[in-house]
Amino acid sequence: MAATITALRRQISSASDLKSVVRVMKASAASAIGQYERSVAALADYARTVELGLSVCLRAVDPAGIHARAPHAGDKARTVHAVVFGSDQGLVGRFNDEVVDYAIAQFASLPVRVWAVGERVHERLLDAGRTPEGVFAVPGSVEQITQLVGQVLQTVPMADSADAGRSQSATLILFYNRPSANSYNPVSQRLLPLDEQWQQTLALQPWPSPQLPEVLSANTQTLRAFIHEHLFVSLFRASAESLASENASRLAAMQRADRNIGELLQDLDATYHRLRQAGIDEELFDVISGFDALAPNSEAGPQA
C-alpha cells in the first residue's frame, strides 16, 4: 500500500510538471500566432501600394500584353516551378503530410521542379517520389522570413524576372498551409505568370486620388521592380501564414495534451485519495482491534 501511494505521488508530480510545460508551450504558440498574423496585416498596406504601382505600369507598358493567355493546367509541355512550405519542429501533427499530399495531387503528371522549405517536407517529397531541387531553412521568426524570401528569389529560376511574370512558359506556384477558423487548410497560389484577370482588374481600377500618376522613364525597368516587390509580398505572406498555421496546429495539440493531462491528474488524485483513505481506515481498524484485544474482559467476575 505504502509503495503504491509513493508511486502515485511520483506520477502526480511528473504529470503536474508536464502540465506546466504544456501550458508554457501553449502560451508560446499563441504568442507566435499573433506575431505572424500581425506581420501579414502590416504587409497589407505595402501590398496595396505595390498593386497600385503595378496598375500604372501595366497601363503604360504594352497594354496589349495584359491580355496574354494565362497558362492552362493541362499544358504538360510547361515546366512548373513549385515551392512547398513546411515545418521542421515537432508537435504539429500531419502539418507537413497534408501540404505535401495536396501539392502532389496538384502536380498530377506535369513536369515539376520542386523546392522544399524545411527538411521534413524535403523527406516527405522524397518518400512521394519527387526529388526536390533544393531545400530552404524554415524561418524561426518574422525577421528571418525576409532572408528566406531573398533566398527563394535568388535560387528559383524565373522568380526574379519581369519577363517571366508575363511569359506563357514561366510558371511558379506556392503550396502552403493557410490559417482557418478551425485550424488550417492547404492552399496553392500561382505567382507566375501574373494572372490574366488580376492584371486586367489592376489595369482598369481607378486611381484613388484626383492627381493621376505616370511613369516618367524606364517603363520596363519600373515594371520589373514592381513585379519583384509583388513576388516579395506574396512569398512573405505565404511564409508567415504557413508559420501561423504551424503554431495553430501546435496550439491545438497542446490544448489536447493539456486536457488529457488534466483528466489524468484527476484520475490519479482520485486514486491517491482513495488509497490514502483506505490506508487510514486500515490503520484505524488495526488500532481498534488492538485496543479490543488488550482491554480487560468486562464480563469476567472478580477473582477469589
Rank of each mutant, 00 (worst) to 15 (best):
V92C: 14
I173K: 01
D281I: 02
P139H: 02
R256F: 11
S217T: 03
A159D: 02
D267S: 12
N185W: 14
L194I: 12
I66S: 03
Q303K: 07
T131H: 13
Q147V: 12
N96D: 13
E196R: 11
D127A: 15
E98P: 01
A225F: 05
A293F: 11
F175Y: 13
V61E: 02
W198K: 02
S245W: 07
D62V: 07
E299D: 10
D101N: 11
A47L: 04
A73Q: 09
F285C: 05
E214V: 08
R23D: 11
R69W: 01
F232E: 06
G129I: 07
P296K: 06
L294M: 14
A30H: 07
R94G: 15
P139W: 00
A42V: 06
H273Q: 15
R94E: 14
L284D: 10
E133W: 00
E241D: 08
P213I: 04
P111Y: 04
R250D: 08
P71C: 05
F236K: 02
W115P: 02
D101H: 11
M1R: 13
G129A: 04
R224G: 15
A162V: 06
S188H: 05
G279L: 10
D163K: 05
N297V: 05
R250W: 04
R166D: 01
R124Q: 12
S167I: 11
V138H: 00
I12C: 04
E119V: 13
Q106A: 14
A203M: 02
S16K: 06
S245C: 01
E143L: 15
H81Q: 10
Q211L: 14
D45T: 12
S180H: 01
R274K: 15
P111S: 03
S13R: 13
L192E: 02
T79G: 00
L110D: 11
N185C: 09
R23Y: 08
S245Y: 01
A47F: 02
L268R: 03
V215P: 01
H228N: 08
